[in-house]
């Protein structure tokens, strides 16, 4: 495979600073990131800026990426695992245009991966940075709406209310029904929202060699998980944490170990299950794997 090139065309936009944000804003975000790394799982407030796209489209992730990215970086952007959806393509083009950086769809080639709601299937490596787009950074927000109170709960490491919520699931439904945004305990101290990734991806956060950064633009919070940091999904001894499983393999590449999306294929209600990580799926197909090809992983 040749080295990554800019798949979105090149050339930086005249009249804008490198990577869009002005230098003072970048410094402010960089200082927040350094503190976030020093206090894993703690949400650092930052002065989130208006970006040229609406809240909810990844303004937090974009600001974190803009503060980190340099001319040597290779950027990949995924939206629910896919490189080719509107949000992913437009954010990738944004940086191709404002920073002139190389972009890629391949996980192995990327030095910075900005993600909405997935962690790539291929294990990340030491040099990589994973930037999450986060809508609601506060894991306790739906249990306690007052910021002053949730801040106090974090200060006291008082997370009983979260365990009660998980217990109520068990009392009503017999199991913990949370399937995405599943809360984690970072470095034995802070309960953290992993952003709306499926709980399938939670175990990948634990002791990951890559640096994981989280940006919430509307809520104005940045947090981080340094490499090789303990990340535990909350559970109970008699109801241990479990990830999703599927009865059938990916209909395109035959993978059984990846996170599958359910896709309705016609008006008769027929459906298929296929990998949500498009790069992982395409790589397997290119390697000759398929539903009939015999499954390894």
């Amino acid at each position: 495979m040749s080295a990554a090139t800019n798949i979105d065309g090149g050339g930086t936009l005249a009249g804008y600073n490198f990577a869009y944000l002005d230098e003072q804003t970048k410094r402010m975000i960089r200082r927040a990131l350094l503190k976030a790394v020093a206090i894993p799982g703690y949400q650092v407030p930052f002065a989130s800026r208006d970006m040229p796209l609406p809240y909810g489209w990844g303004t937090g992730g974009i600001q974190v990426t803009a503060a980190c990215i340099g001319q040597e970086d290779v950027l990949k952007v995924i939206d629910q695992g896919a490189d080719d959806t509107t949000n992913a393509v437009s954010i990738r083009r944004f940086f191709a245009t404002t920073a002139g950086v190389a972009t890629t769809e391949r996980t192995v080639e990327a030095s910075i991966i900005q993600t909405r709601h997935r962690i790539p299937e291929k294990p990340l490596t030491e040099g990589q940075i994973l930037v999450y787009q986060v809508p609601i950074p506060e894991p306790l927000r739906f249990l306690e709406p007052r910021e002053r109170e949730t801040r106090k709960l974090h200060a006291l490491a008082d997370y009983g209310v979260m365990h009660v919520r998980l217990y109520e699931d068990i009392a009503r439904l017999g199991r913990i029904a949370t399937s995405y945004s599943y809360p984690v305990l970072v470095n034995d101290r802070y309960v953290m929202s992993p952003s709306p990734i499926p709980k399938f991806d939670n175990p990948k956060m634990h002791m990951n060699p890559a640096l994981q950064l989280f940006g919430a633009g509307r809520e104005k919070r940045i947090y981080a998980i340094p490499p090789f940091t303990k990340v535990v999904s909350l559970d109970f001894e008699d109801h241990p944490f479990e990830i999703q499983k599927w009865d059938e393999p990916c209909a395109i590449c035959g993978a059984t170990g990846s996170y599958l999306d359910e896709v309705v294929t016609d008006d008769a209600g027929n459906r298929m299950f296929c990998c949500s990580d498009t790069d992982h799926c395409a790589e397997r197909v290119a390697a000759g794997e398929g539903p009939g090809a015999g499954e390894s992983r």
Binding site: F18, R30, L33, L34, V37, A67, C68, G70
Partner: peptide, 11 residues
């Protein structure tokens, strides 16, 4: 460029 590079080194 310089402040971006030094920030990344510090990070």
């Amino acid at each position: 460029t310089a402040s971006q590079e030094h920030f990344r080194h510090l990070l």
